[in-house]
Design a protein around this nucleic acid. Structure first.
Length: 708
RNA sequence: GGGUGAUUAGCUCAGGGGUAGAGCGCUUCCCUCACACGGAAGAAGUCGCAGGUUCGAAUCCUGCAUCACCCACCA
């Protein structure tokens, strides 16, 4: 054996030998055990893998390798995600740098560019997954825009539409002015901000608002029904002087008004505030839109037309002040405002018709399977978070005004924009009324609508053999940050479409942080590139560093020091093994005479193995890894090998044989236990074990498929 | 406004009713025939605070503090 373990040279070679063996594919395994399946969370095909991907690869590969060695028919199905909006954003930035603008590129051309872009990234990503050691079945790899995925996704939508679960909603949506698309409630990021709170005079009232610029859209003034101060006004109309002349507003009473806030009076702007919109519905108020899709005031605002919201706010406030219509300004008012989770710009609530999914019934089923324990959560506390969200769920806006995604299969005619026909093909003929032909909805689905169907769609639902064999899957391993986005939707849509749970266990890992607990992000410049560090210290070291100190739901902290520490462990494994292997005397034919100590070592190892096995079965990977780490270094290497030295050099051949056989046995078992965590170095050593030990009948054998 | 988690050695974290654990760092000695990416020895913590349960609590319970995060239509 070489004196040093050269990971750069060994890793690609080892991966190739695994891949060539075909054992990533469960059909090629001799295993007769029941299936064990993990559907890989498909990484976004819009960039390189980051350390978070390395974490999921490590954890999933540990499970996959472990269960494969235990004889289960093991499938890990890889994939890549077109990642609709996310990719659109990344791509927008890229072409912006080239001085181009997506809104000026024809749909067809833009689509082709995005397609090429994602295909290139996908290819890079596949190579990266390989170098991380992912033992997934590449023959089954899926892309989220594969034709069958598109077809079935649209089918689900149509089915839901026909069942009355999908409707065209006229309500306020979260509109991102920069990205020119609506977002779901989950994609809204609330931030605290200090804004002036203006106390404005409205005829007999003074009322508080942070958005004076929306006053042109006011269609009522509201008070709390029980507020004694304002009883006499309820139901009446008030007249007020205003910037564009006198106005008349109805005074209404609504429970949504907090009598203790401000003066207890609010202006109601149904078109531009979610609460006001609800109030408007209850009181049948006019919805007067005064802000457009670009965040500018429109023609209903007279001389303010064309101003951006922020500019208009200042202008309106100063004009009001000039006319003595502002009573006071509270400069210290802190409130939270809705922003786009991607670009941080303030979202404009806009009234736009979009496709919504009714969530209540779907959620009810998803609650049941968690409460009954049919689906288990690791860590369990996140089940509470999951349940809380589902119990307060709101309808889901699935329309996105981008082009990168799966087209919503719906058609409308010219005469009535809201006269919809749902179906993958345009309705036959022309609209009977206006004689115009049908226009396809330009919108695409929220990516999570299709991702939410990934477990069964990627397995070829409903007819394939794979679906019948591997569904429901065993474990869904992903980050806790997408518990609502993805996990909850997979459970709801899986139950809806297949009638079965999509997986039995949800394991949620944390977000990788740097040593200052900061989230890693490109803008902070604290990103650890997993492939970069793997190149320096070896993939096994990176995997080990990610495993230890990463327990479910907790954010692991990773630093280069830590990785270096496990590189040292890799070296330790190599050297200890080298001692055992090169010192092994195959010509020694004496029957070994085992000492009580030898037996004690064997027993101890069996005990360790039991604990490690149990830990892995219970998703305590960090603990399993630590146990085996500690055993190998401080028991096997420091004690047992040291003890054996005198025996190996001694005259007593039977004792010498016992010593070397014991070492070899302990080493073999240790390598097996280490393999799921550190597959490369263990496999490489396995291939160099004394011949008789590793392949009794001369057959080539891979540690990857050894019996655990 | 609700909710969750964290608080253990200088740092990062395990552990968990019965005389405190690991890695990194630090100190001393050792390039001993697997390994200096190493070995041996060692210093280091009243386990956030205050109560309670218990023969016994860092570990269970209650309250508090600080930090972090999640959820929520605060005009």
């Amino acid at each position: 054996m070489e004196t040093r373990f050269d990971h750069k040279q060994v890793e690609p070679k080892i991966y190739q030998s695994w891949e060539k063996s075909g054992f990533f594919n469960p059909d090629k395994l001799p295993a007769k055990g029941k299936p064990f399946t993990i559907i890989m969370p498909p990484p976004n095909a819009n960039g390189s893998l980051h350390i978070g991907h390395a974490l999921f690869v490590t954890l999933e590969d540990i499970m996959i390798r472990f269960w494969r060695m235990r004889g289960r028919k093991t499938l890990w199905l890889p994939g890549a995600d077109h990642a609709g909006f996310e990719t659109q954003v990344v791509f927008d930035k890229k072409i912006e740098k080239e001085g181009r603008n997506r809104f000026k590129i024809p749909r067809e051309k833009l689509w082709q560019e995005l397609w090429r872009f994602t295909q290139e990234n996908k290819k890079i990503m596949e190579g990266q997954l390989r170098s991380l050691g992912a033992s997934c079945d590449w023959s089954r790899e899926k892309f989220t825009l594969d034709p069958d995925i598109i077809e079935k996704t649209q089918e689900t939508f149509i089915k839901m539409y026909e069942a009355g679960l999908v409707y065209r909603g006229r309500r306020l949506v979260n509109w991102c002015v920069k990205h020119q698309t609506a977002l779901s409630d989950l994609e809204v990021s609330y931030i605290e901000r200090k804004d002036p709170l203006y106390y404005i005079k409205y005829g007999p009232f003074t009322l508080a608002t942070v958005r004076p610029e929306t006053k042109f859209g006011d269609t009522a003034v509201a008070v709390h029904p029980g507020d004694k101060r304002y009883q006499k006004y309820i139901g009446k109309e008030i007249e007020a002087e205003d910037l564009l002349g006198p106005i008349k507003l109805k005074v209404i009473a609504d429970e949504a008004v907090d009598p203790h806030f401000g003066t207890g009076v609010v202006k109601v702007t149904p078109a531009h505030d979610p609460t006001d919109f609800e109030i408007g519905l209850r009181h049948k108020l006019e919805v007067r839109q005064v802000i457009d899709k670009f965040g500018r005031l429109n023609e209903k605002t007279g001389r303010y037309r064309g101003l951006k919201v922020a500019e208009a706010r200042e202008k309106v406030a100063s004009d009001l002040k000039e006319r003595g219509l502002i009573k006071k300004i509270d400069e210290k008012y802190v409130h939270s405002i809705a922003t786009c989770y991607k670009c941080g710009s303030v979202l404009e609530p806009l009234l736009l018709p979009q496709w919504f999914i009714k969530m209540e019934g779907l959620a009810r089923e998803a609650i049941k399977v968690a409460e009954s324990g049919k689906i288990k959560f690791y860590p369990e506390r996140l089940k509470k978070v999951y349940l809380h969200w589902l119990k307060n769920i709101r309808d889901w806006n699935i329309s996105r005004q981008i082009i990168w995604g799966i087209r919503i299969p719906a058609w409308h005619c010219e005469c009535e924009p809201e006269n919809w026909r749902v179906g993958t093909k345009a309705p036959r003929g022309k609209c009977p009324r206006c004689r115009s032909s049908w226009t396809e909805d330009p919108d695409v689905f929220d990516t999570w609508f299709s991702s939410g169907q990934w477990p069964f769609l990627s397995l070829g639902y409903p007819k394939s053999r794979d679906y019948k064999t591997f569904y429901p899957t065993d474990v869904m391993e992903t980050g806790w940050d997408i518990l609502f986005f993805w996990v909850a939707r997979m459970i709801m849509l899986g139950l809806y479409r297949t009638g079965k749970i999509p997986f039995k266990v949800v394991y949620l890992h944390g977000l990788v942080r740097d040593k200052d607990r900061q989230k890693m992000s490109k803008s902070k410049g604290n990103v650890i590139d997993p492939l970069g560090v793997a190149d320096i210290y070896g993939t096994d070291a990176v995997r080990m560093a990610l495993t230890i100190g990463s327990l479910p739901g907790n954010d692991p902290i990773i630093s280069e020091d830590k990785i270096r520490g496990y590189r040292n462990f890799t070296t330790k494994i190599w050297n200890a093994s080298r001692f055992v292997v090169t010192g092994y005397d195959a010509k020694l034919k004496v029957r070994p005479r085992y000492s009580p100590n030898d037996r004690r070592h064997q027993k101890q190892l069996a005990e360790i193995k039991k604990r490690v096995t149990k830990d892995i079965e219970n998703f305590r990977f960090h603990h399993a890894a630590e146990t085996i780490y500690h055993y190998f270094w401080h028991t096997f290497a420091d004690k047992i090998i040291e003890e054996s030295k005198s025996r190996l050099g001694g005259e007593n051949e039977a004792d010498k044989a016992a010593a070397q056989e014991t070492l070899l046995k302990l080493l073999k078992e240790s390598l097996k236990m280490l393999h799921p965590f550190m597959p490369f170095v263990t496999e490489e050593i396995w291939q160099r074990l004394p011949r008789s030990a590793k392949a009794p009948r001369g057959k080539p054998s891979l540690l990857m498929v050894e019996k655990w």
